[in-house]
Amino acid sequence: MADLPEEARKFIDRYIDSLEKLEVLLLLQRSPERQWTASAVASELQISFGTADRQLSKLCAQNLLDVKLGQDLFYSFSPHLPHLQEGARALARAYAQQRLAVLKRVAQRPPEAIRDFANAFHITKKDDSDG
């Protein structure tokens, strides 16, 4: 299996910590003009509402999505910084060409909850400009 391009690999390591998040991001990226609610994402990807809602909130906090408040929360793909746009594009390209390698890379990461628990005790501030 060929290695993933560096840009896609770095983007996964920095932003994509679960397969659900990967699928949610790619779904919104495929139709950047569409506004998505958590229930629409859940229904499209056949995942629970809670999972969709949580992943959308996280992607939004990482400046990858825009959110608008109406009768519901409406999310759309809109990376706020050029390197996020480029990273997401590299990920989508890698997913189209090397799907198994992308899935393997994401699946090999430690469970999200454990990682968040450990990261809570990192007192030194990381670069938060991109989430």
């Binding site: 949580r54 909850a113 628990f117 990261n119 809570a120 007192i123």
Partner: peptide, 21 residues
């Protein structure tokens, strides 16, 4: 201090385990 760090992490990540911890 642990509670504050974990709560801060929860507000950022919304991971249930950090809230309960």
């Amino acid at each position: 201090a642990c509670a504050v760090l974990l709560l801060r992490s929860y507000l950022r990540t919304r991971t249930g385990l950090t809230l309960w911890s």
